[in-house]
């Protein structure tokens, strides 16, 4: 079964300078028990995607077209707010990017972990035991004593682990992790990733892992969705995307990963140009203005080409493998 199926999703924000098309025809699946990585540079619509799934879009944003089907039965785009609230937490749990600010500063950790179990029929003592159990699972030392402490008394890495413990305590069907390791230093990042993978297998949930760190995605995920300017330009398994990128953007993105540089260089490769203004999207390919394989055909909307085995790229030339660019 597919935990989350997003089909042709469109999200628009109304701004003073006219409508901003933040997500355009976004489609991908999060299959059961798999970790799907969403990758893309800042402003590519990753956060909008999460908010659309959680029903937490800002007041000026709206879903206009497409569907988000959860566990094959709940259409999240039309679900009434009260039903949506029942899904948030117990069925779809989220870990956000900013570990410093993700926990309420004036409520103790134990109280916060107790509060989010408000739907549970367990007694207060049982709920607290569960909280301790989860904190131990994410390796918070002296978990019982941690309950009466406040967020500012923990380090950033510990706070992020507490946030993960809170999310997984709900035993969700889908865990959304929004750049959970971006604010952490490299060593903490590795342990947090390992912990996340470990717990995912223990609890058996699907994970939507948002990151701009390609190494982390390759390490952790089963499938990858590459986003650019609010569109899914390519999706497939980790192997397909990393070994055989078909969209020029994916190919360039992989080239830009410093970890992939085989020799020492002073100049890290970059993708020249900028993301186009989303208030005035080009009718053709969104990446055309930065693409090195651009042709006249690109002024028409590119098709989602199926390369086979679930590997799909939104590009006219996706049939031929992208040139592995010259490494500077």
């Amino acid at each position: 079964m597919t935990t989350l199926r997003i089909d042709n999703l469109n999200v628009t924000f109304s701004t003073e300078a006219g409508p901003l098309h933040a997500l355009k025809n976004v489609s991908f699946d999060v299959p059961e028990n798999r970790i799907v990585g969403i990758v893309g540079e800042s402003g590519c619509g990753k956060s909008t995607l999460i908010n659309a799934i959680l029903g937490l879009l800002a007041d000026n944003g709206s879903v206009d077209g497409g569907s988000i089907l959860f566990e094959g039965q709940d259409e999240l785009t039309t679900l009434p707010p009260s039903r949506m609230r029942d899904l948030r937490g117990p069925r779809i749990a989220t870990v956000f990017q900013d570990p410093m600010g993700a926990l309420n500063p004036v409520i103790s950790v134990g109280k916060q972990m107790l509060n989010i179990q408000y739907r549970s029929p367990l007694s207060k003592e049982e709920k607290l035991n569960r909280a301790v159990e989860m904190l131990e699972l994410v390796r918070i030392p002296d978990a019982r004593a941690a309950l009466v402490r406040y967020p500012h008394q923990f380090s950033g890495g510990m706070k992020q682990r507490i946030a993960i413990a809170m999310a997984l305590m709900m035993e969700p069907a889908l865990l959304i992790a929004d750049e959970p390791t971006t604010a952490l230093d490299a060593t903490l990042e590795v342990t947090t990733i390992e912990l996340l993978k470990d717990l995912q297998q223990k609890i058996g949930c699907s994970v939507m892992f948002i990151s701009h760190h390609l190494g982390v995605i390759a390490e952790l995920c089963d499938d990858v969705v590459v986003m650019y300017a609010g569109e899914v330009v390519e999706r497939g398994t980790v192997r397909q995307i990393f070994q055989d990128p078909r969209h020029p953007y994916t190919a360039r993105l992989l080239e830009c990963d410093p970890a992939r540089q085989s020799e020492r260089t002073r100049n890290l490769p970059t993708i020249p140009g900028e993301i186009p203004d989303l208030r005035a999207r080009p009718t053709g390919c969104i990446f055309a203005n930065r693409c090195d394989r651009v042709s006249d055909a690109c002024s028409a909307p590119p098709p989602d080409k199926d390369i086979g085995g679930g590997h799909i790229a939104r590009c006219f030339v996706a049939d031929t493998p992208a040139e592995t660019g010259v490494t500077a």
């Binding site: 937490g89 926990l103 709900m170």
Partner: peptide
Amino acid sequence: ASHIRTARAFGLP
């Protein structure tokens, strides 16, 4: 604040 977003993401009333 982001902790309020967290609270909402846990479906608190």
